[in-house]
Design a protein around this nucleic acid. Structure first.
Lengths: 343, 343
DNA sequence: TTGAAAGCGCTAACAG
DNA sequence: CTGTTAGCGCTTTCAA
């Protein structure tokens, strides 16, 4: 590897002159700068960031800690962050936790050892206490999920409102046996979405047992399939179904297609997120559209600003729009037939 | 930030003793080790990798350079790599090029400055000469696309064979006007897939002008939609369509749904990749399934081995299986009606 | 306008 | 078993 010293020796100046020339220090003559740059380019010199960091420079790496990049929710976020970060000269480190707090901890340890400049994290349900400590030492931001121990900088969506709206739509159509399929309550998002579901039932004047809930791993397509199967086999099968996770929605759709369930004839369905394919599933999936992109961009801008200004500004948090209900053909009054939009 | 020196001072030993204790050097007494570890943990010490790197330690970061993480093709790869890398203590850096050679170059510069241990890259069509130089200095591996200037370490799929099979299936059903919609020829993958398409036509005894081709940006859903529109409006509209890109396939499906084109009645379609949703699109999409996961795992293992053994072993390349044609309902003999599988 | 030298945190050779 | 010392590549005083 070529160092400043190699350049210095080659053109017969000192390393400090080389360093200054490369930093475009005004005290160095244009002529010397030229020779230095020339030599640097010929030798293929690439500055060593590790050395710079030892002199106090900060890393240009921001880490994104998420459950699983295959979830398009997260890959959209990763893309948006990456784009914004790259524009400011930052690189993106990707750490997948698979919703395992130990994996999360392992990653955070590595990230601290690497002295990353910042961390954007979708925390696991109950982060390890060491994870909490590690995060305290680096500018960070929670995304989607919010755990109190990790500070109050948070970007997310209004989960409660999103599910409330989705469910209210079904209630308004006259459904009285509605099932909710979502993540576990120990996840803040899971709890909020479930709460939104129940709020809508209550507001619709439905008894508490109108709602049947199936909670489970939110990133498991497989679990979505199984949960649907259980719901449909139960004696008092619901006439409508709301989902509280993208992956579960994928499982739901697959299983309903496989079983040939008539939607919305036998069952009305509201999905979560708006994946490619949701619009062409069966009669078109009515679903909750989420402002992921806006959220990710906001998140990136906040962190970038935070990284560029010394003082630690601790605005409490920012929540973005509740998402919008996208009406397609998968919902209709119970017992009715054909998509609601043709009613 | 806590350093070894802080620990040393706290318990009254030298920094080297601390260093050795933390490295579990057999020369240090268990008792001292205990005290050092205790202090380290109390102070929340985290080793500084930048400093270690200056002492010759190598980075534990491997970079993945791809066009766009939103493409599920790449997010699957990222996930698979991440999983394998994490198991060996490596972190994954994510660099998106958007198929822009300048963005690619910018990323490679940053990656070299950070002295990443290795790079896995899906190169742009014609990488910048500086990119080539930069890559020469770091263990790297090409993925999917193969550019001669970037060495002969390559992992990919048999694109020629994949498209040949897909097209042959249509030819066998009696189609004589088949359209191919894929990436540009300047991309190695684009060229190979197109060649596979033409091979199948030729092998089927069809004249060269039996095939109509629409080439364009492979990651653009939008382009897929437009290309389909052009194909269908043309005077001699094809009776079958093959795709050579996941994103283009998404565009194709959206547009065909939107226009209400009867598949396979009016048009037979073979997609590329097997996304969630492809199975429930219309009559079910016949498509080319790709062994992405296997490829990514192979790729990870190869690089890990390469990083752990000093000698640079340059086996030429490994190509994995050609993918398999997944038969569903979207293909049928021309003029026939109903899915081919019901024939 | 340029050089010499110190030091960031860590490891490893060389003493004790 | 432990301490002293040097040096990785760079920036930054302090001198010239």
């Amino acid at each position: 590897m070529i160092t400043t010293r190699d350049i210095a020796e080659r053109i017969g100046v000192s390393v400090s002159t080389v360093g200054r020339a490369l930093a475009d220090d005004p005290r160095i003559s244009e002529e010397t700068k030229g020779r230095v740059r020339q030599a640097a380019s010929e030798l293929g010199y690439v500055g060593n960031r590790a050395a710079r960091m030892m002199r106090g420079a900060s890393s240009n790496v921001v880490a994104l800690v998420i459950p699983d990049i295959r979830n398009s929710f997260y890959s959209t976020i990763a893309h948006e962050l990456s784009k914004n970060m790259e524009a400011e000269g930052f690189q993106l480190m990707l750490s997948e936790t698979d919703d395992d707090r130990m994996a999360e901890l392992r990653h955070l340890r590595e990230l601290s050892a690497n002295r990353v400049a910042g961390v954007i994290i979708v925390p696991t349900a109950r982060p390890h206490s060491e994870s909490v400590k590690l995060l305290r030492a680096v500018p960070h931001l929670q995304l989607l999920r919010k755990h109190p121990s990790l500070g109050s900088q948070w970007f997310g969506v209004d989960d409660h409102e999103a599910l409330r709206r989705a469910t209210a739509h079904l209630v308004a159509q006259g459904h009285t046996r509605i099932a909710y399929l979502g993540g576990p309550e120990e996840l803040p998002t899971g709890a909020e979405r479930l709460r939104g579901f129940r709020t809508a039932l209550r507001e619709g004047g439905l008894p508490d047992d109108a709602g049947r809930t199936e909670l489970g791993p939110p990133s498991s397509v497989q679990h979505g399939r199984e949960a649907v199967r259980r719901l449909l086999e139960a004696p008092d099968a619901p006439s409508a179904l709301v989902s509280g996770s993208i992956q579960l929605t994928l499982g739901i759709l697959e299983e309903l297609s496989r079983q040939g369930v008539k939607v919305p004839g036998e069952l009305s369905v509201v999905g979560f997120g708006d994946e490619p394919g949701f619009s062409w599933w069966g009669p078109g999936l009515t679903t909750v559209g989420l402002p992921i992109q806006e959220m990710a961009t906001g998140c990136a801008l906040w962190l970038l600003r935070r990284l560029k200004t010394k003082p630690s500004n601790d605005g409490p948090y920012t929540s973005v729009s509740p998402g919008s209900l996208i009406l397609r053909g998968s919902t209709a009054p119970p017992g009715g037939r054909g998509p609601s939009k043709s009613a």
